[in-house]
Design a binder for these strands. Structure first.
Lengths: 216, 216, 216, 216
DNA sequence: CATGAATGAGGATTCATTCAT
DNA sequence: CATGAATGAATCCTCATTCAT
């Protein structure tokens, strides 16, 4: 197993923005402000006034872009989940044929996303509960879709004997838990680089699954 | 390694209450109501009015017991953290001499706590940010004290060659992450018993650390 | 006219306390705490809790001594007004026969009271408005009784030609105003001694009345 | 000296409003309501709810105009102090060259202001204590600026021998006290007209200063 | 006398949202 | 698109007061 296998190694500045500058007028500024404030203070701790101020626009103008506070949150979570799923699937498809290799790639992509979009992941972890109805359904569905990628990989690996853990059914959840939690403590300027995170967690994941690393 | 080693296997009803009924008058009812509501809706989503109503007392009477909303949260977190640390250290001290055995016991105790005091763990995971100053310091300190138990065990195991992971320095955090996250999805009536959770996560943890289980 | 005529020149420590230590148990402590807090923050700015705390007793115990917050204020004002009237009358009666002399004595006694019981005077000036009904009536009556002493003296002096001001009818009010206001700025440790205050204001008063100072 | 010298003798209805109707929307109504209620019940006795009701708007709308209760008070006091200083200085500059004449004019202007803006003066007298920090500093500074006008006049008169009181240093304060206090009892419909008040107090002030009225 | 618990009303302030411009 | 004014409900917390002990 190659611990230093390449990660999507964009320069930090080149990480594509979750939000972009498409949208009309202030849309991007609003989304970015909301993202930051929701992450800093939680959904209920960040008021529409706060967001408007941080976005440099007026309170009432927010409602020209998003019909409600919850819709604003949903929008953020949808974008984040969509990008996450896309990056993970892409990584899996790009990886070689071996399940272990694919799972490693998936973990690396996931960790990479957490590091790149830390605030988005913070929100995704704890603010979904503030959504209801259709908005919630949609967000949860996308989140589950991503989890299924991991579950399928683990199941395939278990079936083919590559992963020998006696508990394959729940392992994916544990792997995602430890990868997601990175968002709560990671500091880009700290001891660990993004590359380190990817290497570590790829290894943790395969070890947890009791993968048969050697050539059998 | 015996995966079905006994867990503190109290009947759910016999799990000692985090709060007890000591305290004066309505104190226990208030703490219990706050615990539940903070977990359900988050700190900012649960109002003092809500808590009072759920506790069956008047809003103003809350302030005869806790001088502020934040203090009420701090009280809960302190009790939870103290109990968690106590149960984990106790498990470690009771376990045999092997580091692997001790770590397994620690994980089981931790998972057991998460299952027993699910709501408390939910709060501990995400509501600390609403504390400031002394209250925050105290809670964070107790939380770190618990994490150190795991870090010390991992370090010891790595030093003695029992854990062969190339990344021992950050493994404890990952283990705790996957155990803590149980609180976000566990249903006592679901497919997995508390015993199952303990078995699984003890195994996951040792595997993640690449523990040399047998004498080989 | 002797500007340095003696004032009731008690040592500051010997100024008889407005409250004394008679009363049962905590009564004096409560009155003293209320006096200070009402003066510092105003009637509405000082809560019964504050007063209890400052008096070193429990909130509910306050109501064993005074049936309401307003009654507590009334009690203070009554004591202050009674003492003030007593000291002023006494000074007048002790003074010689001349109206000018008597008015001078009255002013000195009044100023002396303001200096000695500064906080009480602060309250008397601005907190009467918070009383209603019987309580208010009583306090206002006592206050007016005191004012009448001055009005009578001025009227007598005007009738006898000692005070030549063309506006004797309203002069007493002006004199009392300037003397009372001392309470808002006087600092016992400042430039002016109590003796200075008495001398000054006695002179101001006679001058304002256009008293014929010379031997006629 | 002409005791019946003309006062700015506008009909009461023509007295320029302290507040005006400039400001946006409800600003004037809010300020006027606050002015009245603060004067009637004191700062702490008048709630924002009361003020909103009296201003004919909603409670929350108050905060679109003034960010806090204290700021609302400060606004009132600043306007009142500014106008007072302006009217007094203007009167002094318009008066003749003699110090006595100028002081008379100042007193008349001051008394006139007290009569015209009675409620504002009531607040200025006793509610400054509820301000803190910058707000307080600003208000106190303006108040002191006005007091200095009087102190300078008295000092000048004392220096030139026009005022022969032995206590010129503190006389201004006494004069202002007796003039300000008018606000606490004056009734426009009562025995005394505004003109009367001006005449009386101008005479009181000069007498208090022991002014040498004639050429002797 | 003395206390702690209890309460309903009300304190200042902020909330998400709407609407006329 | 963009704004400022407006609002009713809700925020945390404190109020004066009562009551059982």
């Amino acid at each position: 197993m190659n611990d230093r296998s390449p990660v999507p190694d964009l320069m930090p500045d080149l990480v594509p923005d979750l939000i972009g500058d498409s949208g009309r007028g202030n849309e991007a500024a609003i989304l970015r402000a909301a993202l930051r404030l929701y992450a800093e203070r939680g959904f209920n701790g960040a008021s529409m006034r706060d967001i408007a101020r941080a976005a440099g626009t007026s309170l009432s103008n927010l409602y020209n872009y998003f019909p409600s506070k919850a819709r604003l949150l949903a929008e953020l979570l949808n974008r984040a989940n969509a990008l996450l799923s896309a990056q993970v699937s892409s990584a899996v498809h790009t990886a070689g044929e071996g399940v272990a290799e694919q799972l490693g790639a998936a973990v690396r992509a996931y960790v990479s996303f957490v590091a790149d979009y830390q605030t988005a992941m913070l929100i995704a972890l704890s603010e979904v509960r503030h959504l209801e109805g259709e908005e919630r359904t949609q967000v949860v569905a996308e989140r589950d879709r991503n989890q299924e990628i991991f579950e399928d990989l683990v199941a395939a690996g278990a079936a083919s004997g590559v992963f020998t853990t006696p508990y394959p059914q729940d392992a994916a959840r544990s792997i995602l838990a430890m990868c997601s939690t990175i968002a709560t403590w990671y500091h880009p300027e700290g001891r660990l680089t993004k590359q380190d995170l990817c290497d570590q967690h790829a290894r943790y994941a395969l070890a947890l699954l009791e993968g048969r690393v050697d050539g059998r």
